[in-house]
């Protein structure tokens, strides 16, 4: 349980740094989607299931969609 949380936090930091480091914008957006999904898992671990549902629907769903359509316009 504790080990799992630590691994997830390391994954989170890794994907956050990847967002900052990747030059390709589509790659950065996909790294941000991974970040949101891992964050949803972490909130389930911290006993906040309603936040986990919302984050999975909003952070990984709608926000990514908006980002990708903005990128398509440019």
């Amino acid at each position: 349980m504790e080990i799992f949380s630590i691994i997830m936090i390391l994954f989170l930091i890794g994907s956050a740094i990847a967002v900052s480091a990747i030059k390709n914008l589509l790659g950065a957006i996909i790294a941000f989607t991974v970040y949101s999904l891992v964050m949803a898992i972490l909130w389930q671990q911290l006993n906040a299931p309603d936040l986990a549902i919302t984050e999975a629907a909003v952070g990984a769903g709608i926000t990514t969609l908006l980002f990708i359509f903005t990128l398509k316009k440019n």
């Binding site: 299931p49 309603d50 986990a52 549902i53 919302t54 629907a57 909003v58 769903g61 709608i62």
Partner: peptide
């Protein structure tokens, strides 16, 4: 129980999308 207007509304909006 977990859920509520915001999460459910987002999923409903996803179906419309």
């Amino acid at each position: 129980s977990p859920g509520g207007g915001f999460a459910g509304g987002t999923i409903f909006g996803a179906s419309l999308i």
